[in-house]
Computed example of a mutant assay.
Amino acid sequence: MAITSEFENELQKLLTGLTDHPTHEYGPKQRQKLFYLFKSDPFGMLVWRWLAFITARHVLPIYEVFASELNQNDWYFNLKFPRRSLYMAKKVLLGKEQAQVGYDMANGAYDPKDFDYGWRALRPVPFNVYQASWAASMALLEVSANDLDPFRHLANIAFYSDGFTIARGISKDIQATYPDSIPGEDFTDALWAESGHSDTAAAASSAWACEGLSREPDPNKLLEFWHWWLTEAIPQAWELAETHKSA
């Protein structure tokens, strides 16, 4: 099944909006609408899963360049885990491993908070490197989850002076107490990625567009990433889903 005209029209509108946006932001609230469009298509969820894999693979080298300079003995988790996450994701997509195995691996074997903590005392982990590793973990989760909705927390999360908090209806409660708080629906992708509850693409966009310890994305790099995601990654995911739909 070729990519439908409905999707092509929507992607073109998104691309135009991104190009015209002063900072080229494509926030999670907008992408949630695209996700629901995918979800409404019988073929869409398979495409989305392949898209998560392709997206994380695109930024994996950012992590691996950094990790190649590290000594495994200084870490308490396997530095190859992000690559192994994508290897497992591909096996699930190809029907060579059960989704539950991938889901358990994504939920139990690796926490990027440990990744950050493990080196903070010796050498800060760059934000973009952290997010490149997180994208691999999120991709495995999106590929393996039975009831996939990477935006399920968006309406119930907020950022305020003490960090992130999440609970049903919490955004309004936090805003009442902390007027300067930011509800999830107003998050930028960098903030959404930092929350630890994001979709793969948010983490990957931060990995691509941020530099070093900065959490502020370069607008030109952000546009570069989203242009690739909309014009190359999605058509490629559609093609792979069509090729392997019987897996």
Rank of each mutant, 00 (worst) to 15 (best):
W238A: 14
D186A: 15
T55V: 11
A193S: 11
F159V: 09
F151P: 00
L37W: 06
F7C: 07
D180Q: 14
L240F: 07
A52M: 12
W50I: 05
P124D: 15
P22W: 03
H24F: 06
R49M: 04
S246M: 10
F164I: 01
P124V: 05
F127D: 08
E8M: 14
L51A: 13
G184Q: 10
A158G: 06
S246W: 04
D162K: 14
A56M: 02
Y178V: 08
K39V: 10
P22K: 01
V47F: 04
K91E: 15
I62D: 04
D149Y: 04
V101Q: 13
L230P: 01
F43W: 09
A233T: 06
F225Q: 13
V92R: 08
P235G: 09
G27I: 01
R84G: 11
D186Y: 14
L230H: 02
E8D: 14
D186P: 05
D116P: 00
A204M: 01
G169K: 13
S205Y: 08
Y63K: 03
T19K: 15
T4D: 13
E185R: 10
A145W: 04
P179D: 12
N9Q: 09
A99I: 04
P235Q: 06
H153T: 11
L18Q: 03
F164E: 01
M105P: 00
M105I: 08
L18Y: 04
L86T: 05
R168T: 15
K13C: 04
N156L: 06
E6L: 12
M45S: 12
G95D: 05
G17P: 01
R31C: 07
